[in-house]
Design a protein around this nucleic acid. Structure first.
Lengths: 245, 245
DNA sequence: GACTCGACGTTCGCCCGCAAACGTGGGATT
DNA sequence: AATCCCACGTTTGCGGGCGAACGTCGAGTC
């Protein structure tokens, strides 16, 4: 019974984090061979690829931060995923895109370094290294779960629930584990990025965040990072969801 | 130049379909050993698992149709994915769910048969069969692409664009390939299911579909299945997206 | 053929998310 | 210290999506 508190909070999350640490594909699964890829530098704001890019490669982020976003006709608006160092990205198989006119694009949100690997080289290595292949499958699995979480977020039309669930998802996956206390999670993210993730306008995000802050579910101000009270926000969002359905 | 017409329409889709046919994990990748799993029967409307189910297994659909949906507190509302015979489903790794109070659930939309396989048995087989493991990775990849398409669909708030893009996605992935002509795709789906996929209300879907039908972009009536004019609908949706941004 | 059932259609009023424009404060640069 | 720049805040009018309730048509059942 000594694990009661953490079990009550997030038993599956704990298991999930262990799983990720152990099995997700990272830069370390690649052979330490300089010939395996080419190191590239991406200044802040530059694109690794855009909707117009035709050649598909794989990348492993070495330093910095890359955001995968949907490239609207009017520019890249919706953020699908944000990558941290070590993670692979790119068109991980040629299946990734359909015949739709839009594709995604990848933009460096800070100054970044990435290793570009040819798809064929990568597949050859995957077929030779069963551990790496297993890790690749788990990486896909994790991202699929993330994507389905995003689908859940976007399936809610109400602003508070939508932002609330997005914050909960970010706290569960990308959040700084170094919480001040149980259930408080810091999120290094601005309203602008939240708006692009929730497919909302930035002012509306500010209004909604203000409401959540007034209720004491999140904390932030001009000089302090966003902190989410996961437990209370979760309760509020669930109650709000129930009453609206 | 003899492939000009099809290339112009959907070059990547063709490649993608080949890719799927060749590499996606299906029932045929399992060893033909009756001890590998247990065959189960699911009557129409019954659940393979619900939000309350605690044990996680893998399933391969043998006959019928299963829908994976988000289990809202007020029941299952949003359809994430619809499976066809041969496809695997279930908690494909224990990472699938986070600490969020909601989980997904699986409901048989018609009378169905599925093979239940233990996770451990499955993983053992995956580690012994490199081809199956590669196929598993491609299956995840395909579903990740599908999920990201859904994110794109749900990121649009306008009803016509939202329904239009959903129809285009369904036509590109699940649609009957047997088109009457180039660019016309039949979709065996009702307004009710469309509403659950687009996270809209059923009446609003009917209104929106009526508008699209008036414009000649889709065709259907009380006794004829839905047919989508992929090319014209794509043009309309893109134009509509541009003017609104 | 009368019945039921399920799927599609229609209307109306409320609410809320969006757009646009402007205001405010803090931190970094000079 | 003055400046610029960026992130967050706030307001108003408007459009449209939602909810609810009801209507209509076709198909299968007996």
């Amino acid at each position: 019974m000594e694990k009661k508190a953490s079990e009550k909070l997030e038993p599956q999350l704990r298991e999930h984090r262990d799983c990720l640490t152990l099995t997700a594909l990272t830069l370390q699964h690649l052979p330490h061979d300089p010939a395996i890829g080419r190191q590239r530098h991406y200044p802040k704001g530059s694109f690794v690829w855009t909707a117009e890019t035709t050649d598909h490669s794989l990348y492993f982020l070495e330093r910095g931060q890359i955001a995968i976003m949907l490239s609207d006709d009017a520019g890249c608006e919706v953020i699908i995923r944000v990558l941290k160092p070590g993670e692979p990205f790119g068109e991980l198989c040629f299946c990734a895109e359909r015949d739709r006119p839009r594709k995604n694009c990848a933009q460096a949100s800070v100054d970044s370094m990435a290793l570009e690997v040819g798809f064929d080289d990568f597949m050859i290595h995957m077929q030779q290294d069963a551990d790496a292949l297993t890790s690749l499958a788990f990486t896909f699995c994790k991202r699929l779960a993330d994507a389905e979480s995003r689908i859940e977020v976007l399936s809610h039309r109400g602003a508070e629930v939508r932002i609330g669930r997005l914050l909960l998802q970010l706290a569960a996956t990308g959040g700084m584990t170094s919480a001040t206390r149980q259930g408080k999670t810091k999120l290094p993210i601005g309203h602008d990025d939240l708006a692009r993730m929730a497919a909302m306008t930035r002012p509306h995000v500010s209004v909604t965040m203000g409401k959540l802050r007034d209720r004491g579910l999140v904390h932030y101000d001009r000089s302090n990072q966003l902190t989410v009270d996961v437990v209370r926000l979760g309760e509020y969002v669930n109650q709000k969801t129930r009453t609206n359905e």
